[in-house]
């Protein structure tokens, strides 16, 4: 009796069936299969193990594996739901699903809140907001005085922290976003609607018919 490698045995750890992922996200089965093509590419760019490592995400975002960025680090941490240092396929699809144009706005608002809640305390705190402004200024080589930055952070807090307890909770954040909807503009990737056009190779290998 020989040893036969089935298609399933070649699937990386964390692989989940497209039908399951399509049922839980705004993607169709075909789109999940197209995302698998993208995932395979990203997850083999440095270490070919079928998992996206932080350096691989950095390489894809910046064309540079060593380029660090506070927000890219936060994105990685949020995609890495199991917190095991890598992004698995299921985590990748579920997280990208939040950025789909058809995903619920509530999910986008909650994701952005978690992105900005740097220390995961359940609140966006004054120090965290200042740290994020400093990080993006550093990134863009812009120089602003500390006083000026604190004025911006104070003003934002006076608008968003309606309870006045020095921190922004999810409820206050939802209210603030409803008044400033442009704040979650970066939580939608229109490109995700055309994902099957970008990665069409799934068409010849697809095993499952879309139900839609």
């Amino acid at each position: 009796m020989g040893c036969v490698l089935t298609k399933k045995s070649r699937r990386p750890p964390g692989y989940e069936e497209p039908t399951v992922l399509a049922a839980e996200t705004p993607f169709t089965v075909s789109e999940v299969e197209a995302l698998y093509e993208l995932f395979k590419k990203l997850s083999s760019s440095i270490i070919d193990d079928g998992l996206i490592h932080k350096e691989e995400l950095q390489l894809a975002l910046f064309r540079n594996r060593n380029r660090r960025n506070l927000f890219a680090d936060r994105i990685f941490d949020l995609f890495d739901v199991k917190r095991n240092g890598v992004i698995e396929f299921g985590e990748f699809v579920r997280s990208l699903g939040i950025f789909h144009p058809n995903a619920p706005v509530e999910d986008k608002i909650a994701f952005a809140f978690r992105l900005y809640d740097l220390r995961q305390t359940g609140f966006i705190e004054w120090d965290e907001l200042k740290e994020m402004v400093l990080a993006l200024l550093h990134e863009s080589d812009l120089v602003l005085s500390d006083d000026f930055i604190e004025t911006i952070v104070n003003k934002t807090f006076s608008d968003a922290d309606t309870k006045g307890d020095g921190k922004i909770d999810l409820e206050e954040w939802k209210e603030f976003v409803s008044k400033n909807p442009s704040l979650i503009k970066n939580m939608t990737l229109p490109y995700l609607k055309d994902i099957t056009l970008a990665f069409p190779s799934f068409v010849i290998s697809t095993e499952v018919e879309d139900s839609e």
Binding site: L42, L136, I152, V153, L183
Partner: peptide, 25 residues
């Protein structure tokens, strides 16, 4: 109008990358 600037607006506009880059070939 610096004082009317919203820190989150600043962050969301200039976070330094776009996830769209993931789809570049």
């Amino acid at each position: 109008k610096p004082v009317s600037m919203n820190a989150f607006e600043l962050i969301s506009r200039a976070q330094g990358f776009s996830l769209e880059n993931l789809f570049e070939k």
